[in-house]
């Protein structure tokens, strides 16, 4: 049994959240993609047979089932207003998503979410390498005073070259992944930071998305590189028609050795009024809330909760909807006034 620390309810061993109060059970203190650490299991006991004889990679020496490891579910809290979480979901045996988030000393924030392409080999490694490489690259560029949009182009190019070097296992397809990266910067006018506006620069390939939630101004900031979006954008089909197609959500651009030269990232920059909440997520979340308002609602509960609780609730929402895919959520709350975005 899995004991809930909040309400003391005894939950099913496989439960990730308390059935009674919804508290996340036995959350690991994983840090995104610290690959020098051996993965460890999230729970001390096998979720199938209760044995404690578990391998570091999660396999149970009694019943053989693989238990969730810190690669399967991990979260990071930079500060109370800047968090991220990634979860394996239910229907995938491994977490092939990854994220990397970073707060720079000058107050700028970097968020990267990658979703490894399941049909490729080692997608989990591709997403991990891509997110880490891109995040490091952005940090270095910004510290060298490179413009955010240029920093994103360079970061995505660096991630591409890293992922392209990964070797497929066996006869599998080349490892590949989507990427969405954001740089959040204060707007400086005449040497003074604007207290009411922020600038978000985005770069992406594939269908991992960025959203902005704010009173009266919530919106999706990215446009998928998917078959459906391309049909609509080129006027070949109406959205309704395109959505009905089996390949509607097939991605048309990605990172990987098999990504051709025409797969250029889209770069976008937008100034937004504060306050607001920036979300970067994989399709494991947005598939269950295609409307912006629906998604926003799923990330507002419970009222007054801290941001990591909200992120966990977002994962829980996707799991309740079926957990068909891995779920990754990166959240940054931006408030008015304090001079540094993503402030404390």
């Amino acid at each position: 049994m899995n004991h809930c620390p909040a309400c003391h309810e005894e939950n099913d061993l496989a439960a990730r959240f308390c059935e009674s109060c919804g508290t996340a059970l036995a959350i690991p203190e994983g840090v995104a993609g610290n690959d020098s650490n051996l993965p460890q299991t999230v729970f001390p006991n096998c979720q199938k047979c209760d044995s404690t004889d578990l391998e570091p990679d999660g396999f149970c020496n009694q019943c053989g089932f693989r238990n969730p490891t810190k690669r399967d579910r991990f979260e990071q809290i930079i500060n109370p207003n800047f968090v991220a979480i990634s979860d394996r979901g239910i229907k995938h045996s491994q977490n092939e998503d990854c994220f990397a988030i970073q707060q720079l000393s000058d107050g700028r924030a970097v968020l990267v979410v990658c979703d490894g392409v399941s049909s490729s080999s080692n997608p989990g490694i591709a997403s991990q390498q891509a997110s880490q490489t891109a995040c490091r690259s952005i940090q270095r560029s910004l510290e060298a005073d490179v413009e955010p949009s240029q920093a994103l182009l360079e970061a995505i190019a660096a991630a591409q070259s890293t992922v392209a070097k990964l070797v497929p296992s066996g006869h599998g397809e080349a490892p590949s992944t989507t990427i969405v990266a954001a740089i959040v910067s204060p707007i400086v006018e005449s040497g003074v930071e604007s207290p009411a506006m922020t600038q978000i620069t985005l770069g992406w390939l594939g269908d991992s998305r960025a959203y902005w939630f704010a009173p009266e101004a919530s919106q999706q900031l990215t446009q998928d590189h998917s078959w459906c979006e391309e049909m609509v954008a080129t006027g070949q089909m109406s959205r309704e028609e395109a959505e009905r197609s089996l390949q509607a959500h097939a991605i048309t651009r990605w990172l990987g050795a098999d990504a051709d030269g025409e797969m250029e990232p889209t770069i976008a920059q937008i100034n937004l009024p504060l306050p607001g909440r920036l979300l970067l997520c994989s399709d494991g979340l947005w598939n269950y809330a295609s409307e912006v308002s629906q998604l926003q609602k799923s990330l507002q509960q419970p009222e007054g909760a801290d941001l990591i609780t909200i992120a966990r609730k977002g994962v829980e929402f996707a799991l309740r909807c079926g957990g068909q895919d891995n779920i990754t959520i990166a959240l940054l709350d931006l408030k008015e006034s304090p001079p540094n975005s993503g402030g404390t």
């Binding site: 396999f59 149970c60 053989g64 089932f65 693989r66 239910i90 229907k91 995938h92 045996s93």
Partner: peptide, 13 residues
């Protein structure tokens, strides 16, 4: 022949 798992389960067979 192993015990069947649920969709999403992975097993060392």
């Amino acid at each position: 022949r192993v015990n069947a798992g649920n969709v999403g389960d992975e097993m060392l067979a």
